[in-house]
């Protein structure tokens, strides 16, 4: 196997909430390889976004980060801000959910892309402007020369997201993190942007990380899927395997709760009760146990470790679902 691009090991992020330590990310480890699409899936508060922001140093000052995140051998955790800035954009770039909040409303989009180009490479004004047009062409923006002269509000949501992707690509990153990048978009636009991301990934040989609450989107577009719950990875497998041989009851609950086109109307959705736990007061044992149909006494006392029980398939559960179980 080739060297991983990004090697995250035992990453921990703790916030302080009214004096109580809040474990947003609690011992997360994963590898990202060049050319791979890795999805991290979880509900609000699962730690999926925080774990990625920790890697590129985009957390608020109050956050305590521990553990390791090596990008091509360079330790990113604890790196001073001026050094981190060299990696951000050039090695790892991020695209966020809401492009209208990330773009400057008073600046033409061409200038914003050109600014990103000049932040990463020596380029004159006209050179940067040409590169901005080329980047807009790369993200399949119709009429790129004209669009460069427009302001964000003159573009649709899908077009604004294309501008954000163009800005992210300005530094020719090796890893692109898309954090709910298509969540606010319509279904046909979402499909267009996902297709674009996969196409760019193949063309530029990038690694792609999809952070999403949508397990359907993840399973549909990613090679590998990580499922997070209450700050920890609870299951990880190649997408086809996760779908056909889900082991962690939480992942199963997520799959079952997604309304599906194939499902007949009015059939009640299988639901689990309760809510994700308070991260400042995690229960003993497995944090999913209070909501789990399969929970037994051992689940409430000992925390199941995340282990590779089958080749390429990790899960953290004492009583996994599915036939031919490892236990």
């Amino acid at each position: 196997m080739t060297e991983p691009l990004l090697d995250v090991e035992d990453l921990k992020v703790t916030f302080t909430d009214r004096g109580r330590p809040l474990k947003a990310v609690d011992g997360v480890s994963y590898l990202v390889y060049a050319g791979q699409t890795l999805a991290i899936v979880g509900e609000s508060g699962s730690g999926k976004t925080v774990s990625c922001r920790a890697v590129i140093g985009l957390l608020p000052p109050g956050a305590a980060v521990a553990g390791s995140a090596r990008f091509q051998g360079t330790q990113l955790i604890g790196l001073p801000d001026d050094q981190m800035r060299r990696h951000r954009g050039a090695d790892i770039a991020m695209v966020f959910q809401d492009p209208s909040r990330s773009l400057n409303p008073t600046m033409r989009v061409g200038s914003q892309i050109a600014e990103a180009v000049r932040a990463h490479q020596q380029a004159g004004r006209s050179q940067a402007r040409d590169r901005a047009v080329a980047l807009l062409r790369l993200v399949h923006m119709p009429l790129p020369e004209q669009r460069c002269l427009q302001y964000p509000h003159q573009l649709s949501g899908g077009m604004r997201q294309r501008v954000m992707i163009a800005i992210a690509l300005a530094g020719r990153p090796k890893l692109l993190i898309a954090d709910e990048a298509t969540t606010a978009l319509d279904v046909t636009t979402q499909a267009q942007i996902m297709e674009l991301l996969l196409e760019l990934q193949a063309e530029l040989g990038m690694a792609l990380m999809l952070i999403s609450h949508d397990l359907g989107l993840a399973a549909s577009y990613a090679d590998e899927v990580i499922v997070m719950y209450a700050g920890r990875i609870v299951e990880q497998a190649p997408a086809p395997r996760l779908f056909s041989r889900v082991r962690m009851p939480y992942t199963q609950a997520l799959f079952e709760a997604i309304p599906r086109l194939e499902r007949p109307a009015h059939a009640p959705l299988p639901v689990i009760g309760g809510r994700p736990p308070d991260l400042a007061a995690l229960p003993a044992g497995c944090s999913f146990a209070p909501r789990c149909r399969h929970a037994a006494d051992d689940c409430r006392t000992a925390e199941p470790p995340l282990a590779e029980h089958e080749p390429g398939h990790r899960w953290a559960c004492w009583h996994p679902v599915g036939n031919g179980g490892a236990r």
Binding site: A191, Q192, M194, E195, G216, A219, S220, P240, F243
Partner: peptide, 16 residues
């Protein structure tokens, strides 16, 4: 309908 991602990776990928 074609643009809806399916959680089943064996299903056809969104054909825009």
């Amino acid at each position: 309908l074609d643009a809806v991602p399916s959680p089943d990776p064996a299903a056809a990928r969104a054909a825009t």
